[in-house]
Amino acid sequence: MKKTILGELEELVLLVVAASSDDVYGVPVMEQLQALTGRSFTVSAVHTTLYRLEEKGFLSSSVGGATAERGGRRKRLFALTAAGGRVLLEIQQMRQQLWQSIPVGKLELLGL
């Protein structure tokens, strides 16, 4: 299915949301991504991705508590849905298959 194909950033964001114990919103997702990849992301990119994932049905969202440093604005909290979990598993499976099909010793030959 075409719809389940995820871009790199989408996959990363989905994984970050899946990895967090609580519901998360934009800023922590962005910080996690930055810490993991060492690349910098803008708020807009993260938000766009989150909403897109929600549109695809991999995330669900709810409105969460406001804090003072947000100027009293509420957060939109995201959580992984069952469909999101499934697509992550699918991706992992596919990757594993590919890993297993790498001939033995090929990477060693390249000095890795």
Binding site: Y25, V27, H47, A66, T67, E69, R70, R73, R74, K75
Partner: peptide
């Protein structure tokens, strides 16, 4: 309908 959350996140990040 998007403004509140985006601006909230931007502000939060700003103070950090």
């Amino acid at each position: 309908h998007l403004l509140e959350y985006v601006q909230g996140d931007l502000q939060e990040l700003f103070y950090k």
